[in-house]
Design a protein around this nucleic acid. Sequence first.
DNA 1: TGTCCACTGGAACGTACGGCTT
DNA 2: AAGCCGTACGTTCCAGTGGACA
Length: 417
Amino acid sequence: MEKIEVDMLDDVFERFLSNFQLFKDRDVLRHDYVPPKLPHRETLIKYLGMIVAPILKMARCSNVFIYGKPGTGKTVAMKYVLSRLERKAAESGASVKVAYVNCRLAGTEYRVFTSLCEAIEVHVPFTGLAVGEIFDRLKKGLEVRKVSFIAVLDEIDELVKTRGDGLLYELTRINEVLASSKVSIVGISNDLCFKELLEPRVLSSLSEEEIMFRPYDASELRDILQERAKLAFCGNVLLDGAIGLCAALAAGEHGDARRALDLLRVAGEVAERNNADAITEDHVREAARRIEHDRVFDALTNLTTHSKLVLFSVYFLGKANISAAITGDIYEVYGELCKEVGTSTLTQRRVSGLINELDAMGLLNARVVSRGRYGRTKKISLAIPRSPFKKIYANDDYLDLLTNFTPTCLKGKLRRS
DNA sequence: TGTCCACTGGAACGTACGGCTT
DNA sequence: AAGCCGTACGTTCCAGTGGACA
């Protein structure tokens, strides 16, 4: 046994030493990489450049609102423009500061303001102060530094949906109180209906300019992948068919370039692990399977206990042939599961909220239906295969006892379905 | 046509917690 | 140390809803 392992490792090392490598630079395929060329976005980048250019002369540029579906190049195009702008400002000695904040990752207004403060080197505690206080420090910092400041707020819709547009309102008004600095705002949103959430006065000042990024089609995705592949892989290790398949799969999912790049990167890793000399269509198909599996696995393992119990309830209902359960059914099974694992139950209102969260994560399908005199409720089914369930939770110290449990309340329900 | 069911989902509020300012 | 802050997670209350049924 030991001998075999040594030989296998020997193979791996020999291969490495022989200098055969698929990847030249795998980071090039990551989402946050800004490439030197952005195919099919040249016009938009030029337009963005024209909008922000006044910054270089210490004038305020128009606020911009950029929208488009995920993976359409909004973020990377903006980062590209920002990097060139900073470079030009350094050359010309213009006093320019830029801040890029992903509002979804920041999570709260407080953290967004904190990031903006950091960008102009105003250091603030990461908690403990009132939002208003952080905002005041930002204003003071800007006033002292005498800069043209451009704040890019990515995924701004996520913040507005949960916290309202107070932050945006404050920011759009900040120039009224600043004498020696100018602030411009770029809002980026994945949600095309986002504008409806904004108050008219916020909307009108945010969208002085509007830019729409439309999804890529398969041939455009192919160009993007080819461009990145030149930087990411060695020689001709990537077959044309593989690129085409990556592009086709991603085009099928609303032309998402990030998805295409993920597929390519994982396909490369699959090929690497298989000691293959080239990346083929089979590697891409395997990559697609692996990405989906990893997504489900990560989501399932990182849930809170009660979300897991709710998901388990839907799993059991599905097992009992109740494929589209209603909220009441789930709450009943959930109650039993809580009892079984010895935890207290949440209220039905809260469970209803958890169902919505699981729906948003793509783990459940939930649809509000009216059943006439039998009331209005949600029909809920699993959005993922049942097979990984047992496997994933068999290793969970707390939930493994549920894998062989049968809720008693399901016996009566079986007849109904 | 009105009633009624089984919820939905918004809003207000409570509690615990970590961390800052004074 | 006290007071205050934001955040996360939860409860309670309740008006609103869409369509089957009498």
